Computed example of a mutant assay.
Amino acid sequence: MWAEEGAVMRTVRILLPALLAILVGGCSQVMPGTAEPSRGSELSEVFGVQVPPGDRQKLDLAEQIRSVDPCGFFDQAKIATYGQISTVGPWQRIGECRLGFLQNDRNQYHSAVLVELESSPPRSSETTTKQIAGEAVTVSPDRAFSGECAYTVPLRFPAVSGGGQSNPDIVEVPAVAYALVRTMGFTPKSFGCTVAEETVANVVTAFREQRIPRRARPLVAVPLTQRSPCEIMAHLPPNHHVIRFDAEVTPYECKFTVNLPNATGPRTDDLVGVSFKASSAGSAMAPVSGYQVEQINGKPALTKRDQNSAGPLCYVEFPVGPVVDGYLPGTPATDGAIKSARIQVMVKLTGNCTVTDRLVPPAMDLFGANR
């Protein structure tokens, strides 16, 4: 956040505490899936940046999400009675887990159930809820595959009290974490809904009983899942400074604005995006859509430069860690299913080329780019 913005907000809170209490008092309660909101009025340092309590809470919640192993929510023993499990692991995002199996009445095509921890809140159009294991979960048909079932589930992390001096005039609206549970490829589709609801119940029960599966002991090890892309903010090159950072509950994506010296003297601002993504292992380093393969400090990377009115915009991606192979050897699976179960974790940076050219080398060192 802007330092000036923080000062203005503190002034407003001093002048209008009664008005604030009226306007936002109704949002002061702890909402489903939240850590207890911090009441401190002091800024705290995270990733080398000073943030207010509300932003600190979002970053803490993102850290809690990164600590969870989504593969641990599946009852594999029960699913094995429905068919032979052949794949377990991430598919399109590193913060998800997909379990694929061959239904007992099939010879080839797989069904799958997914738990995605990078989910956004329920959409305004999603107004229907369903009680599952004592929790009101949102029915999310717009996020479902081909008319199958999808549910958005609040993640009730144990409350964590924030530090700092209590200030009754400040009411923070707590951030909320959600998981998306959905199915694909089931026949009949109602069977997929049953499996989805059983998995939702596993998620709800695990949080309620504080038996949350953790990445510290993962079912499937995935590089960078316990790291934050925001770590790069504490490792910027000399004369580069973060001048704006709007924190979000996005565990594997980070955006911030950098201020750096311009060659002609004035200073220019630039929005930088850093994210961790999952790419198909077979094509992760394929130079498509205008990308080309380059060596940066002896490490392979995909790079792309686009021209716009503000100067060249750069996209850089580089692989980190070994290929994650979620296929269980010897189990029945199509070539497509085996291929989709193999992913490569990538780090992606975007921004004005003047900035990204300087940020990529320290990012490669920080996150452990492959050679």
Rank of each mutant, 00 (worst) to 15 (best):
P52D: 15
V113D: 06
P37H: 11
Q84Y: 00
G89V: 02
E36H: 10
V51E: 04
S38K: 02
K58W: 08
Q84V: 15
G72Y: 01
P70Q: 03
Q92P: 00
E63F: 07
P32R: 07
E63D: 15
S44W: 06
Q103C: 04
R98W: 11
R93D: 14
W91Y: 13
K58G: 01
D60H: 05
D69F: 03
V88G: 03
G100F: 07
P32V: 06
Q64L: 15
Q92W: 02
P37E: 09
V88E: 09
G89H: 02
Q108T: 14
V49W: 08
R39Q: 14
P37Y: 12
V46C: 02
E63K: 10
Q29P: 00
T34E: 11
A112W: 13
S38I: 01
T87P: 00
E45P: 00
R39F: 09
V46D: 03
E36C: 12
V113Q: 06
D69K: 05
G100L: 09
D105H: 11
Q64T: 04
Y109R: 14
E42K: 04
N104E: 10
V51T: 06
N107R: 13
E63Y: 07
P37F: 10
V68L: 07
V68G: 10
Q57F: 00
A112H: 13
G54I: 03
A112D: 12
S41N: 12
C71M: 07
M31E: 14
L99P: 02
H110E: 13
I79N: 02
S44P: 00
L99F: 06
V46P: 00
F73D: 00
P37Q: 06
S86T: 15
I94W: 01
R39H: 14
V46I: 12
V51N: 07
T87Q: 07
G83H: 08
Q84R: 13
F73P: 01
L43T: 10
I65N: 03
F73K: 01
A35M: 12
P52K: 01
P90C: 11
V51M: 06
G54D: 15
D60K: 10
Q108G: 00
T87R: 12
R39N: 10
L61D: 09
L99K: 01
P37W: 09
R93E: 15
G54K: 09
T34N: 11
P32M: 05
R93T: 15
S38R: 07
D60M: 11
D105T: 10
S67Q: 13
P32C: 06
G89A: 07
G54Y: 03
S38P: 08
G54Q: 12
G89D: 07
L59K: 09
Y82L: 13
W91G: 12
P90A: 10
S38H: 01
C71P: 01
E36N: 06
S111F: 06
V113W: 01
R93K: 13
G89S: 08
E42N: 07
I65G: 02
K58N: 08
S28P: 00
I65S: 05
Q103D: 09
V49Y: 11
P90T: 04
